[in-house]
Write a protein that binds this DNA or RNA. Sequence first.
DNA 1: GTAGGGTTAG
Length: 558
Amino acid sequence: MNNVYKLHAHLLKTGLHEDPSSLHRLLLSCAACAPDSLSYARSLFAHIHSPDTLAFNTIIRAHSHSSPLHALSFFTLMRRRFVSPDHYTFPFVLKAGSRLRVGFEIHSLIMKLGFHSDVYAMNGLISFYGGLKYVEFARQVFDEMTVKDLISWSSMISCLNNNGLWYEALCLFKQMQIVGNFKADEVTMLSVISAVSSLGALELGRWIDSFVRRSDLKLTVPLGTALIDMYSRCGSVDDFIRIFDEMPKRNVLTWTALINGLAVHGRGREALRAFDEMKELGLQPDDITFRAVLVACSHGGLVVDGWRVFDSIKNEHNIEPMLEHYGCMVDLLGRAGLMNEAFEFVEKMPIRPNVVIWRTLLGACVSHKNVDLAEKVRERIYELDPSHDGDYVLLSNAYGGIGKWVEKAVVRTSMREKRISKEPGYSYLNVDGVIHEFVSGDNSLPKSDDTKDFLVSIIRSLSDEGYIPCTSNVLHDIEDEEKEYSVSYHSEKLAFAFALLNYKDRKTIRIMKNLRICCDCHCFMKHVSHKFNREIIIRDRNRFHHFSDGSCSCQDYW
DNA sequence: GTAGGGTTAG
């Protein structure tokens, strides 16, 4: 900013202070500086006698990000002064617009002024609609464009990806290469990689990885970091470590992706080592790094290390711990069975605990069968969010865990009365590029009877080897035999049976599921991994479980 | 002589 002031003073001295191009350059420098330099930019702009399109574009662009209302009023001024917008103007204005109505106005203006076949203006519309989650409108603009460039495709792919339409984003990416014959660049790939990460589809991930390798793209810091995260979410530890090693340059985000990956795969010690190594290199951890390290501690049961890291956030790094960090600590203490310590921690927190914190504690109460505390915690949750399905399920599991079937039934009934339904559990399995979906007790699948029969025979054969179905998580108060029946068909078990029937010689079975794996399925997977000599990798809502030879990477601590 | 559209990775 100092240079801007100096230059301005110089211009005033030399009489060039009304020269449009000098002023314009000053404006540009202002825009590149911190947002608080914007008022200076506005006063500079006021010096320009008759600002042209370029000057308006620059001042609008400067404001579009951090001061959108100013940007829009400059656009209004531009129209009032009959300065004609060019194709750069629209994307800037659209970036500032955050309401659909504004977008519509600009959309019709673009049409009226004859910019309907201008890629710049139309691409701006795609990202505008995409940003407001109006995917249909974005798609319509995209489809109606007669000429598209790489940025049109890229904007549309990112729009689909950002709105949860991951599969559609990947389809469009494929289409881009066939129809459009465009070469994806780094920005495009970041969206594509993000879509694969969300889908957790390893085979697709490997294909994208080799695609990046085959193209002329360099393994830049953002690209490599995105790939690390992708492999970690797709369940391949070896692959994300490989990418990390291959990267010529790394930053805090890269290290955080690595630490987080190790954490969710149950490699807490390695995550801590990576954290130390990162600090030795002089990189400053930030809030997200700390969250990853704390997750590593809580999944690994590293209570002492967790406390040390938590205290260091403030003491060593001068960062005020955030709600999320407190949440990690509650999880850490709760999982470790230090229930009273966890409860005290929540009560003494300097930030008001939210429902997520209490819910974490409730989860710990259930795993440690502490029903008294669970009821107390449930009260707190009830005040904040009375209609969350998961809380009812947790509490009912808490009762089930200690055989209080009457209380369990009461919870179940109140759930029914309030018309709260439990989110159904489902699992995904990829067989030869086709993604199969399984729902608990599912009948819809082709050959589903075969799968079920096979599953029943597996369960029978396991019971000879000491596997006892654990039914405390069954929601209904039903007879024992029925209970067993109900957990028998949990979606991940169906997926496993289906995989055994349909995978020829594959040793590794990868399953994704939406909820947390239950006790019984966890126990089941340990047994079958040994019996059938398979590696089973399950991604649940929170983390990964790698089952092999009768044990799990989480060491039954999850 | 020159600015300027997508997305910002964990």
